[in-house]
């Protein structure tokens, strides 16, 4: 029990340290620059308690649950020895975690409004929601492809930087030909796909794969899955903008 308490206290101390910059920044701008009394101080304090407790519990959960789970799956697939099953799993994981992502849904709706304003689609609710839905599917598909590509890279030991730099060149080239209104949406879509639960799971999966395969180095080959997941959505959304 004493040990658990120490862990708990340490997690809470860490969480306080993580949140401190936000509190300092807001307090500074509020008192020095804006010079207005703090609105609803009690509510803010209660909210901050929730944030600190939540972060402490989350980090403990990462160590107990998400990291071991990602690694256990990686080991299980390696000992099973079926690359096809692993790649199918990678695609489902990427697609499944992205398709329902709330920030992606928000961006999709905003993008539909931009497209309607620019006259790329008809300005009515049906056309907008169809556009937003297709955009979401395109991004989810792209993340599925990204995780497949990333896992394939780990299996084969391809150097990451060539693939990523190739992707950058492709994004740059496509930007020249894509319609203006899709560019901002496409560039932002790379960042919104990686949610707080997907990132630890996918990272642990990559590191687990690289450490259970012979000849792969977890540092060199284990990381990189997230990098693909933030690059391919840009390429797919730019392509979608060019086609539609």
């Amino acid at each position: 029990m004493g040990k658990n308490l120490t862990i708990l206290l340490r997690r809470i101390a860490d969480a306080l340290r993580d949140i401190a910059p936000i509190i300092i920044v807001i307090a500074f701008f509020q008192t020095v620059v804006i010079r207005q009394p703090f609105p609803n101080l009690a509510g803010v304090a209660l909210g901050l308690v929730c944030v600190v407790a939540g972060l402490a519990i989350f980090v403990q959960g990462l160590k107990l649950g998400l990291f071991p789970l990602g690694e256990a799956i990686a080991h299980a697939f390696v000992s099973k020895g079926s690359a096809v099953a692993l790649l199918a799993f990678a695609f489902c994981l990427g697609f499944g975690t992205t398709v329902a992502e709330p920030s992606l849904i928000a961006v999709g709706n905003e993008a539909a409004e931009v497209a309607a304003e620019a006259g790329a689609i008809a300005d009515d609710d049906d056309a907008r929601s169809a556009y937003a839905f297709r955009l979401r599917m395109v991004v989810a598909l792209s993340v599925g492809v990204a995780i497949v590509l990333g896992v394939l890279r780990i299996l084969r030991g391809w150097p990451l930087h060539r693939l990523i730099i190739g992707g950058y060149v492709l994004v740059t080239a496509m930007t020249l030909f894509a319609p203006d209104e899709i560019i901002g949406v496409a560039y932002d879509s790379g960042g919104v796909t990686t949610s707080t639960i997907t990132v630890p799971l996918v990272t642990a999966l990559g590191v687990g794969l690289a450490s259970s395969l012979k000849g792969r180095n977890p540092m060199l080959d284990g990381f990189g899955l997230i990098a693909f997941a933030s690059l391919t959505p840009m390429i797919f959304v730019l392509a979608y903008g060019m086609v539609s």
Binding site: G43, G47, C50, I57, F58, P68
Partner: peptide
């Protein structure tokens, strides 16, 4: 499983706190 529950619980508290405070 316990870790998964912690992650869900922690994230929920964290998001509510952000929504409420920040």
């Amino acid at each position: 499983m316990r870790g998964f529950v912690y992650v869900l619980l922690g994230l929920t508290l964290f998001l509510v706190g952000l929504e409420e405070a920040l």
